[in-house]
Nucleic acid binder design. Structure first.
Lengths: 197, 197
DNA sequence: AGGTGTGAATTATTTCACAGCG
DNA sequence: CGCTGTGAAATAATTCACACCT
């Protein structure tokens, strides 16, 4: 989150930012900002604040954003399509190198630079192309079997859009985007604010 | 999360579930399960565990999922399309009653039962139809102005897919799905596991 | 003066452990 | 007996407050 705002400040040409300023932007406290950043090092200058550009660089390095990551998307449905078009991928050096689907009607075409390929090719392609991150955009019931194949093929990071709790070995990272749960949070908030006020 | 698994267990016909079992399913500890559930009431039976069906009902009630929520989607792009088709909406009694977009070519058609309407109609429709939840699927630079209009029109819950930090009054709940941040987490995990192992 | 870095104090969360009910 | 509900103990996270640098 800090990185997001620092990049914006950097683009605006701002040279330094205090923990106070970053806290306001991020909706947290100055002490929190200082503790968080100090975990990774001493980036600030006393009396001045944090050098925006330098800190941006540091955070990018820390988050592993200076290197290119090769991404595959599994599932060429509506969600897959929305993701393949997502600008954020390119901006961050996440390159979509392939899309995988079972539907023969889709296989052979391509979305932008990314070819849509058959599920059969999954393991071979991962090994050949060195894909590191998989985006899972398949129906919930197919999720776990696909994950097992991905993990077997050497994938160690999965961005999961399927409504399912995935089981993976410890060395594999999963980030799940669970729309149902987000909606339920809103529902809870609404139901509760009705009672309170 | 408990609800998700309880519903599955209920469908399988399982009558009771212990905190141990729920903990295993959800990847947490039995003590955590008991503390969490006890916050809302004493649902368990000593010696037996939690009655699955009854607890499911309780949690649905607590989360406000027994009532229908009227949802509008703002932005008829790729993400909006993926969301309009999302099954989870219907399963949970979230009804999409309208989609809003600036593009005259899209206005007038409809996605399923939801008509695509012009942005001009936003405030009037919200008041007339009593929409309670807005899904924001517009480009980042349009996000805040749209949010201000939504809030002004009485919306108190927003599911945000735009890559922007939204500013809202305290009585408005926002859940943001930030793809860039999810990817950055994976990048960090990969970059770090490289160093460690 | 202005603002970081960081131990110490505070507050929140998680885990322990066990009384007590079915 | 088995398993919940819950105070007490242990951990973790946040905030305070101030020495110290520019």
């Amino acid at each position: 989150m800090y990185l997001r705002y620092l990049e914006a400040l950097d683009e605006d040409g701002q040279r330094t930012a205090s923990s106070d300023e970053l806290a306001q932007l991020c909706g947290t406290t100055p002490a929190q900002v200082r503790k968080d950043l100090s975990f990774f090092g001493s980036f600030g200058k006393r009396g001045l604040g944090y050098p925006v550009h330098e800190l941006t660089d540091h955070l990018q390095e820390i988050l592993g954003l200076r290197q290119e990551w090769r991404v595959i998307i599994v599932g060429a449905g509506k969600i897959g399509a929305a993701l393949a078009n997502y600008r954020g991928f390119r901006q961050r050096r996440f390159t979509v190198i392939g899309v995988y689907d079972n539907d023969p009607a889709k296989v052979g075409s391509s979305w932008g630079a990314a070819p849509i390929r058959a599920m059969d090719a999954l393991e071979g392609d991962i090994a050949r192309d060195g894909a590191q991150i998989a985006v899972l955009a398949v129906p919930g019931e197919h999720a776990q079997p696909v994950v097992d194949r991905l993990v077997g093929a050497g994938i160690r990071a999965i961005l999961n859009f399927a409504p399912a709790q995935l089981v993976v070995p410890e060395h594999v990272s999963v980030q799940s985007v669970n729309m149902a749960m987000e909606l339920e949070r809103l529902s809870f908030a609404l139901a509760n604010s009705d009672q309170d006020g």
